[in-house]
């Protein structure tokens, strides 16, 4: 299978300040039971690639993230619908 992941480095560039703001907001909001729902709510004007870009920043920031449910649920970003299992964020570990 050939594939291509979204180019999270060049095509979409939320500002460093925006990513930093989201990280701060997430830390203040802990625990978060559904990371994707929280992120979509935090970035209401962002498209899917922008949300995914910030999501990757969150994963790289050392938060404690675990599956909250084995049942996928629908999410909507703009006109785009997709399904994923909700992820719970409980804390931020040492980096």
């Amino acid at each position: 299978m050939s594939g291509r992941s979204p180019d999270l480095n060049t095509e979409v560039q939320p500002t460093v300040a925006e990513s930093s703001r989201v990280l701060r907001d997430l830390e203040r909001s802990l625990p978060v039971d559904d990371l994707m729902a929280w992120l979509i709510g935090t970035l209401p004007l962002a498209n899917r690639d922008e949300v995914f870009k910030v999501l990757k920043v969150i994963y790289e920031a050392g938060f404690e993230i675990a599956s909250a449910s084995a049942t996928a649920q629908p999410y909507k970003i703009g006109q785009e619908l997709f399904q994923a299992c909700p992820q719970r964020v409980t804390g931020r570990g040492a980096r």
Partner: peptide, 15 residues
């Protein structure tokens, strides 16, 4: 049948 990789995927890429 009970795939942890799917359950932990935040975007649904693993399905």
């Amino acid at each position: 049948d009970n795939p942890p990789c799917v359950h932990c995927c935040p975007t649904g890429a693993s399905h």
